[in-house]
Nucleic acid binder design. Structure first.
Length: 162
DNA sequence: CCCTGATTCGC
DNA sequence: GCGAATCAGG
């Protein structure tokens, strides 16, 4: 699907009407939003009350100085390797479960926390084994973890590890 | 993770 | 010139 005069005119109209590139792409059909954006730029009609931050020029290559370093996973496109990576996040603090408290599946009973720790099937997989109370399946800490609102997945994941 | 536009560059 | 890939940001 090429850029016929009709399609270009429609593109100009829709773009000036404030439609997004993906919306225009869907309207024109058989084309991606990248194609729309590329055409918009080539036509020189970009800049539509754009956010100033997105208008800032992007560096061609990674800056190999300053605090943004540690290129450990180069992103390669074609024969050009360009990448920069931010400092890795620090490891989340793991809640230690005493070794002597840990239980295997066979060691669980109605008074031991059943919260799984580690990857099932792994050699170091075990259960929390902490004391439970009030007929709960988990210890107090893991009860909080298990019953907290489900929208905080990051926290849930962290808790799963420990 | 959804989306937005911006930019680069092989084709 | 075209637009996928990739970027930065909301």
């Amino acid at each position: 699907m090429g850029w016929t005069d009709e399609r270009v005119e429609l593109l100009k109209k829709l773009w000036s009407d404030g439609l997004s590139a993906s919306q225009i792409a869907a309207e024109l059909g058989g084309i991606t939003r990248n194609a729309v954006i590329g055409k918009v730029h080539r036509l020189g009609l970009s800049g539509r009350a754009k956010s100033p931050s997105s208008a800032a020029p992007r560096p061609r290559k990674a800056r190999s100085s300053g605090h943004m370093l540690r290129v450990s996973r180069p992103a390669v496109r074609g024969n050009t390797a360009l990448a920069y990576e931010y400092e890795p996040e620090p490891e989340p603090e793991l809640i230690e479960i005493p070794t002597e408290q840990r239980k295997t599946l066979l060691q669980l009973n109605e008074h031991t926390c059943r919260w799984p720790v580690g990857d099932p099937g792994a050699s170091d997989f075990f259960f929390c084994g902490g004391d439970t109370s009030n007929e709960q399946p988990y210890c107090s800490f893991h009860c909080r973890v298990a019953y907290q609102p489900a929208n905080d997945r990051r926290r849930e994941k962290r808790a799963f590890r420990g």
